[in-house]
Structures are given as structure tokens and as C-alpha cells.
């Protein structure tokens, strides 16, 4: 290396800056080209997951919602301009990490569907939570749910009590939050109407 050219710090810096600038330029270009498709496929994935748990024409995120327990986001589901149901994104902790799932409920707070978006549970055991036979147990039920061995109505997956408990607690959290919002919304809507209603019932 004795005859190698001595390179000063300025040249080193300039070379690196040129390389970085060139790479950034390429990345910017590619990002510009792919941005729309990535956004579209991401939206399609979320919409698919939502449609699976509650079929509706469009979904609208609850703007003022703050994460509550394991519930990360809440959506209203509308059809024909009328609020039909609710969808909660919730992430309870399972055996192999966080389970990302969505829970749908109708206006009465009854479960309409449970779907698992992503999880890292053991395949063959906890990963069976994706199976229709397990998820469909929640449909049509409301109120706090529990596994059968704890006196509830949900059959646990064979050999995967932790995962089953996690999914159940995720559904419970979602139902609790949705229940609160149903109650709040009912109050907000009823309040202006309380007086005429009260009057009519009084006259009856």
C-alpha cells in the first residue's frame, strides 16, 4: 500500500456524499413510482380484514380515540349512511409475542367476526387460532367471554391455552371499548330527544 495515493479527508467526505446523493436520488425515484401501489395494496389488506369481521359500505376511524388497554384503533362501519357497527383493532400478548387482530361488533355490542391479521404463535398449536372453527366461536356472543375451563363458553385450542386466553382477552377488550362508545353515542343522541320523549311518555 506504500504507493497507494494518499486521500485527504475532504476527498473521502466528498466521495461518500456523492455516493449517498446518487443512491438517494434512485431511492426517491423508485419510491415515487411505487408509492401509490404500496398504499393501495395496504388499504386493500386492511379493508379485506375489516370486511371479514363486519361487512359495510365504508369504514371511518374514530378520530378522538386514544389507545385503551390492548385496543389500538376503533372504526365505525356505515352502510347506506347509517351507523351499522364497530370494528376494533386490538393486540393482546400471546405465547410468541403480540397477536394483531380485528374484532367486529354490531350496534348491540354482539361479536360479528374475529380475524387475525398477524401473529407469531407456534405453528401447529397457537397458530391454529387462525382456523375458522376457533374464531367462529366468538360470533354472536357478547359480554365478557371466558374459556370453558374457566367456566366460560369458549373452547380452548388443544395445547395452546395461552393463545386462546390472549385471543379471548383481545375480544373482551374490544367489546368493552365498543360498549363504552355505544353507550356514549346513545347518550349523545338521546339527550336532545329526552325531553320530547319524556313528555310523550308522561302524557301516555
Amino acid at each position: 500500500m506504500s504507493n497507494a495515493k494518499k486521500t485527504g479527508p475532504v476527498k473521502l467526505a466528498v466521495t461518500l456524499v456523492i455516493i449517498c446523493a446518487a443512491v438517494s436520488l434512485v431511492l426517491g425515484l423508485v419510491n415515487h413510482i411505487t408509492e401509490d401501489s404500496i398504499e393501495a395494496s395496504r388499504a386493500a389488506r386492511t379493508a379485506d380484514a375489516m370486511a371479514e369481521v363486519f361487512e359495510a359500505e365504508y369504514y371511518e376511524p374514530v378520530e378522538d380515540f386514544r389507545p385503551d388497554g390492548t385496543v389500538k384503533a376503533l372504526y365505525r362501519a356505515y352502510s347506506g349512511g347509517v351507523l351499522r357497527g364497530w370494528i376494533a383493532e386490538t393486540s393482546p400478548s400471546g405465547f410468541g409475542g403480540v397477536i394483531d387482530m380485528v374484532v367486529g361488533a354490531d350496534g348491540e355490542g354482539t361479536v360479528t367476526g374475529v380475524s387475525i391479521v398477524s401473529m407469531s404463535e407456534t405453528s401447529g398449536l397457537g397458530a391454529n387460532a387462525r382456523k375458522e372453527s376457533f374464531r367462529s366461536q366468538f360470533v354472536g356472543k357478547s359480554g365478557p367471554l371466558a374459556l370453558r375451563k374457566k367456566g366460560g363458553e369458549i373452547d380452548a385450542l388443544t395445547g395452546a391455552t395461552v393463545t386462546s386466553t390472549a385471543v379471548t382477552s383481545g375480544v373482551n377488550d374490544a367489546l368493552r371499548v365498543i360498549g363504552e362508545y355505544i353507550g356514549r353515542e346513545a347518550n349523545a343522541e338521546e339527550e336532545p330527544r329526552t325531553s320530547p320523549d319524556a313528555v310523550s311518555s308522561a302524557t301516555d
Binding site: 455516493i19 449517498c20 431511492l27 411505487t34 395494496s41
Partner: peptide
């Protein structure tokens, strides 16, 4: 590493998109 990271990100974006 900068060059490699650039190409990896390009491939990553293309895969995500298509």
C-alpha cells in the same frame, strides 16, 4: 454498504408494491 442498502430498499419497495 450504501450502494447495497440502496438496492435492497429498491427491491423491498418493488416487492411491497407488486
Amino acid at each position: 454498504i450504501v450502494v447495497i442498502a440502496g438496492f435492497v430498499t429498491v427491491v423491498d419497495l418493488l416487492l411491497q408494491a407488486y
